[in-house]
Design a binder for these strands. Structure first.
Lengths: 349, 349
DNA sequence: GATTAGCACTCGACCGCCCGGAGTGCCAGT
DNA sequence: ACTGGCACTCCGGGCGGTCGAGTGCTAATC
């Protein structure tokens, strides 16, 4: 569909300088500025010709006659794909990521939210970390605790040192020993299994119980089902940080647009859907403006990266900011955070 | 300092109508509007005289010559103190609060955040719920779980069906049975005590252990100390909801002001300090504009109410919105939420 | 003495206008 | 192929004028 057949050396260079300049100060860039800053020994007039080429190729545009040019979405695309020079991550930032994420005293959940807030802090934008589907979690231990009047507190420990708890309503009040028995059976039968497997096997178990087993056993199985099918278990989740940083950016300052953006984070639906698409991607992925497919993000870019365990992709993280962002700095931060987060989760298997 | 010696019937009435009118449409209110809407059978000119009195008393002011008048902070104060007519809570809203907060399947934490989000939803403003100091929580059960390489997962169940967990580093790897033994001792000794008491008694215990007991026991006590002095335990916390709703209000729309507001929620320090002051108050309390003492809230009002257990005040909740808010609707919502939250927490003792 | 009508005055919001600056496109000259 | 020159366009800011809303004051009225 596109006509990027060729682009002279000069045109490429000019596009690069133009985008960089516009990212820096946000204003449209004119031919004179460009002739001064590009390092090329040509006059403004010549540059105007080249710019006009770039415009007809849909890489840059002028917001109105006789303003400078700004990159179009396609322009940004080309820039990001083939001319941005990724800056190495600063030592300090790297250290901070390393030490705060790979903290052995943190549980998986804490590590994820640390990653999210660092991501936001280092990029000065909003960040999102998608939490692994709980369904992929492995059961470590289950514990029941009797509350008053037929209510039972179930505590579920999974890998990643994650503790989930849920209150169950039972049809009759169960004794301490009954609960201990139930927990024992459950642990004996399912420890080490993925929760999704546990769910599946519980259904079989209930089938079997219908015929063979006694009523008590049926009760236990049903209770166990309540635990693993409960609200949070098995559901995607996202951690968002630093939304309010987006207010700093002038171009997003129309209240209704900003509001829309905030809503998008609140809804989480679109968010999750978008992030899901990045699961299979190999490394950092950049969505510029409308590329994300969600109109709330029209003037924004989203930079994502999947993070992986030794046994495959686990989740996705990313940042959201204005299209006019410092890709050369942001990309490595996202990249590195994903890597560090991956290995941190790895080490707490 | 003030000169509210007296205020004619008419002046009071006019102030009331003016404030109500301004709350409704946000624009300055002029004498003609007032003579039309006040129900009084007097001309605009007369009203102008009264308004001029009100102005000299510092209850209303005009943003500039020849605009109408708007209430000053003191004007709002008087309005809230002695003329606002509290509206009864709507049936639907009451039902919603009742059913969602008093949900027996929710843990204390979930109940608090439900309350916060309902508060925000019903008032269309930002809400804050201050969580009881964890130090006041009563120990129900402790469980240890061995992780790899000298790391132990401690699971702490307190009243309110709240589950906290924390990863401890131990100097040597402990066996399953050692851990079970330690947990048994801990539970035998401390179940039913407040965490603050547990903390204190652990110190004594360590003293005693230094002389009498064996090294293993010392290790256990130290581990227990780690559990109850860990990060979250014993710290105030706040749940904030619906910050972004504040963007809807035109008067808060200057970006920097709004930003400041968001930061205030982020910092939480000021927030907590402000809420702390309301702990002893008897019912709903209203801070108008600068009364809160924090400049971030200058154009805002804060409506708070403490919520209580049978054994005394537990925490504070409230909403933050523009000074120009519908006090007659907001106050009962805050009031009722506090009451319902209190009794909900009560019933899960 | 309280209330009112009348009137001059003030000020913000809005509109149309003009002007300077920045930047473009095109063309003719090197 | 590049450049200088030039006419043109458009945005933004400053200026002046008008309009409407609202005030404060004063003199007349109840």
């Amino acid at each position: 569909m596109s006509s990027e057949i060729s682009l002279t050396e000069r045109a490429q260079h000019l596009l690069k300088v133009l985008v960089e300049h516009h990212i820096r100060d946000g204003r449209p860039v004119g031919s004179t500025t460009l002739s001064r800053d590009s390092g090329l020994k040509v006059s403004a007039a010549t540059i105007r010709n080249t710019m006009s080429d770039l415009e007809s190729m849909g890489l840059i545009q002028s917001p109105h006659t006789s303003a400078g040019r700004i990159p179009t979405q396609r322009g940004y695309r080309l820039f990001v794909d083939s001319m941005v020079k990724i800056q190495p991550l600063e030592r300090v930032q790297l250290n901070q990521l390393e030490s705060e994420i790979s903290d052995r005293e943190k549980s998986a959940g804490e590590v994820l939210s640390t990653a999210s807030s660092l991501l936001s802090q280092l990029t000065q934008m909003a960040s999102v970390v998608m939490v692994p589907k709980r369904g992929q979690m492995v059961l470590r231990q289950l514990e029941f605790l009797s509350l008053s009047e037929g209510r039972v507190l179930a505590i579920l420990v999974t890998n990643g040192n994650e503790v989930q708890n849920r209150i169950l309503q039972t049809d009759r009040t169960l004794s301490e020993s009954e609960l201990r028995q139930a927990a024992n059976w459950f642990n004996r039968t399912f420890v080490g299994e993925e929760l999704s497997v546990v769910r599946a096997r519980l259904v079989e178990e209930l089938e079997r119980a219908r015929g063979e087993m006694d009523g008590a056993m049926q009760g236990i199985v049903r209770m166990a089902q309540q635990v693993v099918t409960s609200g949070k278990v098995g559901e995607d989740d996202v951690v968002v940080s630093g939304r309010s940083r987006l207010m700093e950016y002038g171009e997003l300052c129309e209240m209704d647009r900003l509001r829309q953006l905030f809503d998008a984070f609140g809804e989480k639906r679109d968010m999750i859907h978008l992030l899901d698409q990045c699961m299979e991607a190999d490394g950092v992925q950049v969505f510029i403006g409308e590329e994300s497919g969600y109109s709330s993000f029209d003037d924004c870019s989203v930079v994502t990266a999947p993070y992986r365990h030794e046994d495959g992709v686990v989740g996705v993280l990313g940042v959201v900011g204005p299209t006019r962002m410092a890709y050369d700095k942001v990309i490595p931060v996202v990249d590195m955070t994903a890597k560090i987060l991956g290995s941190a989760l790895n080490s707490m298997r």
